[in-house]
Amino acid sequence: MSPLLEVTDLMVSYGGLNAVDLVSFSVEEAGIVGLIGPNGAGKTTCIDALSGFIPHATGRVRFAGENIEGWPAHRRAEHGLVRTFQSVEMFDDLTVRENLIVAATTTRWWSVFIDACRPSYRVRNIDVEWALEATGLGGEGERYPTELGHGQRRLAGLARVLASRPRLVLLDEPAAGLDSAESVALASRLRSLPDLGIAVLLVDHDMGLVLDVCEQIHVLDLGRVIASGPPREVRTNPDVVEAYLGSEADE
């Protein structure tokens, strides 16, 4: 069986500088893959390119049996390839539940006319309720994102991508700014995603989280993959220690 996501020779350059340089990897159906590397290694650029935010990225990207290179971001999202952002980026004017509804519903061009004639639309979307429960935000649906604490905002960002019932989520530093307790809670939620049939590509600085959660890890440095393998191997790989962990690996 071919993998869910297959990336071959992905390349992004800005002004002569190759931010992502011939990167290839794959994510299996319901797998958890980590993407790590020092600052400026091109991790976020990778996520931007895979989710359709960098139109000039080159290379082959196959997702769920289709070649998706050149697809705009929204089309990839509709096909089940979704992402989160480092800075969460909630829709602050909408309640948490409404944020999720946006992601969970699809519209057609004629929806405007139907919506204009339908008074008092009450959404009870099962995907939305499921995503709120799955992230432990069941009680916060009516609150606004600005009223939530930082940790809950991050969870809300996760809930929003889950509400669209994705096949693969690209998570960009979901643990940034979380304290240790919140980080631990997040890890257990992430580990439960494959059971729900959702594959994960995880980018984070929190080595504990990545080593703990992922089955397979790819290490980027200066836009290239310098090592790949299960957590234990990557952790002891001398190249990785050199490039990323520095002296901390001694601990």
């Binding site: 020092p38 600052n39 940034a176 600085h205 080595m207 990323y244 520095g246 002296s247």
Partner: peptide
């Protein structure tokens, strides 16, 4: 240290 790799923080 927010958003920085440990080596940079060090």
């Amino acid at each position: 240290s927010l958003g920085l790799a440990p080596i940079v923080v060090e």
